[in-house]
Design a protein around this nucleic acid. Structure first.
Lengths: 285, 285
DNA sequence: CGACCGTGATACCCGCGGGGTAACAGCCGG
DNA sequence: CCGGCTGTTACCCCGCGGGTATCACGGTCG
């Protein structure tokens, strides 16, 4: 009745993502007919049509869309269970903190120092990750806590504790007219035709329209800035990796960036609770 | 490698809860040897010892404790996937709102009216539930949104939108000395020896110490109040089910109760988003 | 001290069902 | 009308989940 195995969910997700039984089977490294049968069986068990089989291709029903979303989070939860259990069995028993490389360096430093000094807090490893990846790492158990930034990061599914709030600065080549200014506005920044703002991916992975280059990693951004090919607006504390030939100019009306400590909202781990508590005891800002 | 089936997780949770292979097997309606084997196999797959088998009974290792917590949330997520998929396939396609009976009646009424008037919002069913049960219903998919109360309810794993904040009142028999007062304090309330405050279960299901009766349901509470056997402090809006022979006296220093609309923090459903958006547009308080 | 429970583990067998291969069925473009 | 796509049907095999019977160990009690 209620029993749905993770295998079936994995199969369904593969088919739902590929919308093609053959390719999905290939990805799953099984033959196509058993996959077809497994999906049929899943539909029978649920009593629900998940796919509209058109002779040419396949598409999801509304129920299928729902199951795709729900199955992904369920599979993440299962993966998290496995990862966290394995890690709990290791003799070191450390937690993993995920953070974007370069961002909030000073905040992270203070956090780590405070945790190291606190006997109640377990060891904390730092896992550097791609932009926007933190929430996924928390969901599937590769990380236990993360440093994230409001309002730029997707905090869905996370509980958070504010650590630090700061304004943003524009990074421009020292030779650029804007570098002379005491302070600028977002309108100024957007009006610079020769230095477009680099575009980060949105939450769904697509990029907003615009003239700037599409980037996905901090290192790609660093490269562009070093070449003087892009302008960017970042929190003041991210300047750790700034080059000497560039200048940081405060942007008055850019949204304030709050660095937050995030953890899975469903977490009931006492270790995570200890880490959060110790972080909350830090002198905030 | 990574493949852990929900069956294995269900088996492990049963054993971890019973701490006894025989009883766990009985609960699962299978024989004991296959269960024993399944757990061994799970341990081998994870490469982790989950149980310390003592001749007399069985206890969890630290890794086992972690897996118990994580497996519960993973199984809830799987159950939620099944439930929500089944419900999405029904022709009516409604959402389910969970709420404690009696509480926040007026707020709920306004919500339902607003939703009914909004064409973007799907139909919403109301599911009455036990105190403290809402978060569980959201996790395992029996409900999609819930009315909850801060700070009394456990909001772990939920995102929330504040709807209404209000003070609390004490409900006392009309013949009682306190009924004469214009307003009282928590100290007053606690100092009444003949009318102890009923004790609600804590988040973990245990009860705080105290003289009052242990209650779990609104109806039990209603019964006690009707008999004049207990005193209680509740939000003013919960007075819908008050009896005529009782009097509500404002309690000055009781914590303010905020009624919030809650939904699973991991939800990505557009229907839930629409419901939340429509609720946020209500004139707040 | 030995018989007896009660614990979980082992040994063995059976049958379901997940996996494979081969062949089929509709639908398109040439 | 044919060939190349789709996904489905038909059939077989064997791995493994489940069952029963039994064992191994340790505590308890007469």
């Amino acid at each position: 009745m209620d029993l749905v195995e993770t295998r079936e969910l994995r199969y369904f997700v593969a088919v739902a993502e590929e919308l093609h039984f053959g390719r999905a089977a290939e990805r799953l490294e099984i033959a196509q007919p058993p996959l077809s049968r497994a999906i049929r069986q899943l539909e029978r068990r649920l009593g629900v049509d998940l796919l509209r089989r058109d002779r040419r291709g396949t598409e999801l029903t509304e129920a299928g869309e729902v199951l795709l979303r729900e199955a992904r989070t369920a599979l993440d939860a299962v993966a998290a269970a496995v990862r966290r259990t394995r890690r709990a069995a290791r003799p070191d028993r450390s937690l993993v903190l995920a953070t974007k490389a370069g961002a909030s360096h000073a905040v992270l430093q203070r956090l780590l120092d405070a945790w190291a000094a606190d006997p109640r807090v377990p060891a904390v490893e730092v896992l550097l990750c791609e932009v926007g990846e933190q929430a996924e790492l928390l969901r599937d158990g590769r990380a236990d806590v993360a440093l994230m930034h409001r309002p730029v990061d997707d905090l869905a599914g996370c509980d958070t504790e504010d650590l630090h709030t700061e304004p943003q600065v524009a990074i421009v080549p020292g030779t650029h007219p804007l570098a002379e200014r005491e302070r600028v506005t977002m309108a100024d920044v957007r009006a610079v035709p020769d230095l477009p703002m680099a575009r980060w991916p949105r939450l769904d992975g697509t990029y907003p329209e615009g003239p700037g280059p599409e980037i996905r990693t901090q290192s790609a951004l660093a490269q562009l800035v070093a070449l003087g090919r892009a302008l960017l607006v970042i929190p003041a504390s991210s300047r750790a990796w700034q080059w000497p030939e560039h200048v940081a100019v405060p942007v008055d009306d850019a949204p304030l960036i709050t660095t937050v400590l995030a953890w899975p909202a469903t977490s009931t781990s006492p270790e995570v609770a200890a880490v959060v508590r110790a972080a909350a005891d830090l002198p905030g800002a």
